[in-house]
Amino acid sequence: MDLGPLPQLVVSGILTGLLFALISVGLTLIFGVMDVVNFAHGEFLMLAMYLTFGLALVGLNPIFALPFVALAAFVLGAIVYRLLIRRLLDGPPSTVVFGTFGLLVFLQGAAQYFFTSDYRSVPNPPFQGTLHLGNVALGEAQLIAGLGALVMTALVFAFVEFTEPGRALRALSEDRVAAQLMGIDVQRMNALAFGLGTACVGAAGALLMLTYPAFPRVGTEFALTAFVVVALGGFGSVQGALLGAILVGLVEVLGGFYISPALKLIPVYALYLVVVLLRPQGLLGRR
């Protein structure tokens, strides 16, 4: 039986979704632990892409640059938490919204000023071949980025589920007051969560540089999808973010092909609306 382009579309959709997943996991982690919607999440992605680009200029393959970029992003995230987010948390809830949105505007403006609005791609990027499995064509870079995102997401999941600090993070997201009473240091854990969330998006930035150029507004294009994914999968749920992201990737690619590419986001948002109507907490979220 000839399935036509269907297998190709499914594979492309899943790979696209995996990258969305890594970006979204960071966002959902931050939200789950401290109830903060970080509007500047996409801008951390942008900074990570520029850092990867800079490292590529001195000859470092984005894949090898990934640990450094993720680490740098972790440190940056922790610093931003200490300097900015911690203070915002003292105000009314809307302070955080405006604060992180302000950070978005600031980081975009700074990038525009320092890096100009030019597009930057890794020179002579690695993994430019295409693998053919039957009718399915797989870009090597796309495949590596997708699998890399899957591995990173799995690592984050393992960290949150099976380690001591991970348990503390989960305890905080389940019951803040009780966790504090048990002797969990909220400030440290918040900084850890924010750093970890930023590290995820940092790793995603390094992987994304295999297939996508860096420019000051690049974060916005991915952050919007990440917000949908997080709401779809359930705020604060790592598995939910993974599931939501793959769903979004599949629906976007299949919808684009069988309906019309110009309307490809409509099925995505339709799915999102249906899920939030029937399960306001998201697919795998807790009430």
Binding site: Q8, L9, E221, F222, E252, G256, P261, A262, K264, L265
Partner: peptide, 20 residues
């Protein structure tokens, strides 16, 4: 005749249509 929305984060379905 394939219109698409500018500034897409991926163009998989567009390119599949062109290929087909």
């Amino acid at each position: 005749r394939l219109p698409y929305g500018a500034n897409s984060s991926e163009l998989q379905s567009e390119v599949q249509k062109i290929k087909a």
